[in-house]
Write a protein that binds this DNA or RNA. Structure first.
Lengths: 228, 228
DNA sequence: CAGTGGTCTAGACCACCAG
DNA sequence: TGGTGGTCTAGACCACTGA
């Protein structure tokens, strides 16, 4: 068949790009498009659903499909799995744990992980190495109620991240990105200067209604994350 | 119908989360699942396609559907439209153009926009204000071959970004995120200190095979971008 | 090369909501 | 309240690829 949902989607995308349907304007109904392209309505539906998912058009029942006012302000990113990223670059990955301590949760961690005063947490600081060169610095707090087994994990061989994914099974999470000036500690870990601008990723993961871990990753200066 | 593609998708997601199908394991074929849930195979297909799109499972013909080794390392982000973001916070948005000059493209801009030595570009520096407080600093280069009309645009009322979207129609683009220490210029613009860590977004957009604009946004210290 | 996911179709009914 | 997108179905054929 010459007209798949992909070819139709590209064709519509092109008509939008070319300016035939400018931002904010309405485009033909599914049925009309399906007749124009000689295919089933379901095929056009799928093509348009994809374009809506990409943020290129907005769809409403009864009101039809409109070209978005601000197309292309959505993006997908891959949250880096450090080991894979390092290995993809042809280097050898090694996590080096510099702090590994169990303590009663400090106040700010209690807030992050929704814990009580007496709950214990595992605090980990890890330098992620690529060919023994520091690549990223990780500051992690783990809820020991949720993942007691981690105290026996071989964290010099497998990163806490990977251990948690496999042993505590899958979990939901939130992510945010930002920038911060390197403290002395982070600068030492990353072999850079005090105050250097570091790209940071903060993540929290939970399972059911229990928080599992909160982590901040500080990347060496110059690191960039690309979206598609 | 009790079983829509959404309810089925959630059910499968839950079975993965609960550990019934651990990372790397294979899950039943579409046909078996459709019989189990009492629906059409197309419905299961759509549910699984969604889960694959979310990165929770990986699908291959003949090999079946497997739970991903690293679930949830995909995320979607909204590339901020500064005006909308400011207005959503209940503040008044205003772009303040501090540099507006036409010149022959400097070397690094020629590289970014694929221009020749004699091509002219528009260089814009803009401070984005929220309630007259600096919010972000923008350094933009515009290919005047692609968007000659911008020299007459009222850039004090509408940002270059929005003008380009509406007047040069839609375009493709690439995005990357990083961090950098504020130079004196950026520090002045954002009313912060020299060397402060700034979250940055770099974007290039093109249409057909012509580059339109390259822009770097520097956000005030403390800014975070959230993903879902 | 056989079995899996990938896709299309034609028809039907439903949910929503703008006019 | 009627028209639009949202969805499901049953069946069919195709494309890929791993056992």
């Amino acid at each position: 068949m010459a007209h798949t949902h992909e070819t139709i989607g590209q064709a519509i995308r092109k008509r939008i790009t070319r300016g035939e349907w400018p931002p904010g304007s309405i485009i033909p109904r599914e049925q009309d498009l399906s007749e124009e392209y000689g295919c089933a309505r379901a095929t056009v539906n799928r093509a348009l659903r994809k374009l809506a998912d990409d943020g290129l058009v907005e769809r409403k029942r009864r009101a039809g499909t409109r070209v978005a006012e601000f197309p292309a302000h959505h993006a997908r990113i891959k949250i880096p799995i450090l080991r894979l990223e390092v290995e993809a670059a042809g280097a050898v990955y090694r996590p080096q744990v510099t702090v590994n301590e169990i303590l009663k949760a400090p106040l700010f961690v209690r807030g992050l992980l929704h814990l009580n005063k007496l709950d214990k947490v595992l605090h980990l600081e890890t330098i992620h190495l690529a060919n023994d060169k520091p690549f990223a610095f990780e500051d992690r707090w783990v809820n020991l109620n949720a993942a007691p087994g981690i105290v026996d994990a071989p964290l010099d061989r497998i990163s806490a991240n990977e251990w948690l994914i496999h042993e505590v099974a899958f979990s939901d999470g939130s992510v945010s990105f930002g920038a911060s000036n390197a403290t002395k500690r982070e600068a030492d870990a990353l072999y850079t200067e005090d105050g250097a601008a570091l790209f940071t990723i903060k993540r929290r993961t939970w399972k059911a209604d229990q928080y599992i871990t909160a982590v901040t990753l500080y990347f060496r200066p110059g690191y960039e994350m690309h979206a598609t």
